[in-house]
Design a protein around this nucleic acid. Structure first.
Ligand SMILES: [Mn+2]
Ligand SMILES: [Mn+2]
Ligand SMILES: [Zn+2]
Ligand SMILES: [Zn+2]
Lengths: 128, 128
DNA sequence: CATTTATTGCGAATAAGTTGCAATAATACA
DNA sequence: TGTATTATTGCAACTTATTCGCAATAAATG
């Protein structure tokens, strides 16, 4: 399965690169200049995830969000930081907060999906 | 909104009480002796969550799982432990592993949804 | 330029969860 | 014990997120 370069792929990757927040398929479709089919966006994102270029976050709303997370240089670190979901501005972002845990004997961890939910710093300040 | 005792409520609560694992609506429906409507099960579960009798876990598959988690006596602790999803036996369980984090200044955490995914101790042993 | 096949768009399918509404039944209280 | 109130239930329809089959398109390769 050799990958090919396409305008679609490039556009989605650009968007994610320039975004400070993790984006859902829906958000990506809305923010794109060009019209790209819903299914295609999902397929592009899933390929990015397979290739470890992007990581997938599943929030408490059950939806998938995608982020490049430039802070993480080593791919193996990508899955081990917290994400933050702000209920006020409805965004999800990568925190540079590592996930620390010690699982009981015999458990083998392959991935971690850790999302903290609440009010982000921007929105907290807005109130007082 | 005063709550009433019903056979449905009791049956679902019994099931959750006797289960070592977190259960999805689907799993609950299948394991129940009596036939209960899908929507009703969801409504019962949502009420349990509102009343802090049960907690809701959203897994990487985007689905909701429900657990009583008897280990947690204080309701405020309930949301601060890890959950483990085993890809081999397709179960989700509460781990007695606390979630530790220090969010950046200004962030206010209201809840945490932390799921580790991999192979549970039972399934790890089975392989070797 | 021709061939191969990864990628796309479209529509339909799947699956989880919610909602409106009328019927039922738990609770309170006369 | 009988009656009124309203929480709860079942059913069907709905919403939303994500996937899938298939035919058409277009990168890559040489
Ligand atoms: Mn991240
Ligand atoms: Mn738990
Ligand atoms: Zn915010
Ligand atoms: Zn297992």
């Amino acid at each position: 399965m050799n990958r090919r370069n396409t305008p679609t792929k490039e556009a989605v990757l650009n968007l994610l690169s320039n975004s400070k927040k993790a984006l859902s398929q829906d958000a990506i479709e809305k923010q794109l200049d060009i019209k790209i089919n819903r299914a295609t966006i999902y397929r592009v994102l899933n390929r990015f995830c397979e290739d470890d270029m992007v990581h997938r976050i599943v929030a408490e709303d059950g939806k998938q969000y995608f982020a490049i997370c430039k802070k993480c240089e080593k791919p193996e670190d990508v899955q081990y930081h917290f994400h933050f979901r702000c209920l006020s501005c409805d965004t999800i972002e990568c925190l540079q907060v590592p996930v620390n845990y010690a699982v009981p004997n015999g458990y083998q961890v392959q991935s971690a999906n850790c999302v903290l939910t609440g009010t982000c710093s921007d929105c907290s300040q807005a109130v007082g």
